[in-house]
């Protein structure tokens, strides 16, 4: 299946679900235009266009998804999610230094001195800018607060 059809199927499912959940929207008045009208129009239009994507022949080539660096992308996404989790728990400085160094390692940077100087200096400068210049309060992290 080429990429146009894959995309068409994904969007058709999405539009069908969108249309289905549009029926859950509460209607408060008897007027022609309610909170449901616009979602209905969009849902129907979306289904038609995604069906056309599936049905009409495509001249685009399929892409070799296996040749891409998926492992690095997944590792990076995981690092971002962990950063989001740790940011409010261990505080901005430690979480950011850890996040940046993890990303550098994922990106196969092996110059440890560069990594440390970049992450440490950037985090400290950014922290100073936010807290001292812009007066933005950054909580120290809930784990240290007990």
């Amino acid at each position: 299946m080429n990429e146009q059809r894959v995309g068409g199927v994904i969007f058709f499912v999405f539009c069908a679900l969108y249309l289905f959940f549009a029926t859950d929207i509460t209607v408060t008045s008897e007027s022609t235009f309610s909170a449901r009208t616009f979602p209905y129009i969009l849902g129907v239009m979306g289904c038609i266009v995604s069906l056309l994507l599936i049905v009409l022949p495509s001249i685009q080539k399929t892409i070799a998804l296996t040749q891409l660096k998926w492992s690095a992308v997944f590792a990076m996404c995981l690092a971002m999610l962990v950063y989001a989790f740790l940011l409010s728990r261990i505080g901005f400085i430690i979480a950011t230094i850890l996040f940046l160094n993890t990303c550098f390692i994922i990106m196969r940077e092996r110059k440890w001195r560069h990594m440390f100087y970049t992450s440490f200096s950037l985090t400290c400068i950014f922290w100073l800018l936010l807290t001292q210049v812009l007066n933005i309060y950054l909580a120290p992290g809930s784990w240290w607060m007990g």
Partner: peptide, 14 residues
């Protein structure tokens, strides 16, 4: 780029 891309990710998130 191994230095640059993490910095872009950091600035986007923060």
């Amino acid at each position: 780029r191994p230095i640059l891309i993490p910095l872009i990710l950091f600035f986007s998130l923060i």
